[in-house]
């Protein structure tokens, strides 16, 4: 199977290690990975901030970049949620009927990483080893938009030498919310403070999630507090890149 990686603008720019881990993981599982270089950003920030019209050129670019892809895989629940939930109507709004048709045809072929592993490849044991105490943060889009359910946990449960710890209030939001963290910085910080407190109380050495954006947010507070907890993307754990835990906060 040939997979086209949608690495996301955030990972491409700030967290390339997450992209590299995704590639290594998929290749190790025998998947051929392609990176269409005309890809940029799905437009989530714009759409969710209310700049829908301004997002349309990105929608067009995304659809054209991946139109020929057999399967698109992204290491981000929120980007996949945006594409799945709103691309058909956004493409409609461009006024280009051909683009709208292509978008509608493309959407069912776009997968979040754990969906692809569990549903398409049918694997839950990816053969990784990660000798650390890890807290899994189920991001809002993993839980309530994509309904990833227990997929991430099943994948994590099969990782060798890893201890998965429980975090109190695990399913509550970290307070990121894109521009929410800027526009409502005080509420966002209050939510983040509770989340980070719960992570620290769990005794985890690393916190992992399916979204680099939430990890950037949580990591930002961990770094600022000088807390000895690393943020790692699920892809990095599944690729068995245990060296990332040596660093503090932001892995790069």
């Amino acid at each position: 199977m040939r997979v086209s990686l949608f690495v996301t603008c955030l990972v491409d720019t700030l967290y390339p290690a997450v992209g590299r881990a995704t590639v290594r993981l998929l290749e190790r599982l025998g998947v051929e990975v392609d990176f269409p270089e005309s890809q940029t950003c799905c437009g989530q920030l714009h759409v969710n901030t209310g700049y829908r019209r301004e997002a349309l050129p990105m929608v067009g670019n995304f659809v054209r970049a991946f139109a020929q892809a057999e399967v698109v895989v992204a290491p981000s629940a929120s980007c996949v949620a945006l594409v799945r939930e709103t691309y058909p109507e956004l493409a409609e709004e461009t006024g280009d009927p051909a683009l709208a048709r292509e978008a509608t045809a493309l959407v069912p072929r776009v997968y979040e990483l754990t969906e692809f592993l569990v549903d398409r490849l049918g694997v839950t044991d990816v053969g990784a080893r990660f000798p650390h105490r890890v807290a899994y943060h189920p991001t809002c889009h993993s839980l309530r938009a994509l309904h990833l359910g227990d997929r991430p946990r099943r994948l994590l449960a099969a990782v060798r030498d890893m201890e998965l710890v429980t975090v109190e209030g695990a399913e509550s939001c970290c307070g990121f919310g894109g521009t929410f963290a800027i526009k409502n910085a005080d509420v966002s910080a209050a939510m983040l403070s509770d989340k980070v407190g719960a992570i620290l109380a769990s005794g985890a050495e690393a916190v992992c999630a399916a979204d680099s954006s939430c990890l950037m947010h949580i990591g930002g507070a961990l770094v600022r507090r000088g807390a000895p907890v690393a943020t790692v993307h699920l892809a990095q754990v599944l690729a068995g890149e245990d060296n990332v835990c040596g660093q503090r906060g932001v892995p790069e």
């Binding site: 690495v7 990972v11 491409d12 720019t13 700030l14 967290y15 390339p16 290690a17 992209g19 590299r20 590639v23 990176f35 270089e37 963290a181 800027i182 526009k183 910085a185 005080d186 966002s188 910080a189 983040l192 403070s193 950037m216 947010h217 990591g219 930002g220 507070a221 770094v223 600022r224 906060g249 932001v250 790069e252």
Partner: peptide, 27 residues
């Protein structure tokens, strides 16, 4: 950056983006 930096550090950008790594080492 509004209140972001009051309670959070900014992420440190890497030396090389993912696409440059792909171009230079993977492809």
């Amino acid at each position: 950056l509004g209140g972001w930096t009051r309670s959070r550090a900014l992420p440190t950008a890497p030396r090389r983006s993912f696409r440059r790594w792909w171009r230079e080492e993977h492809r």
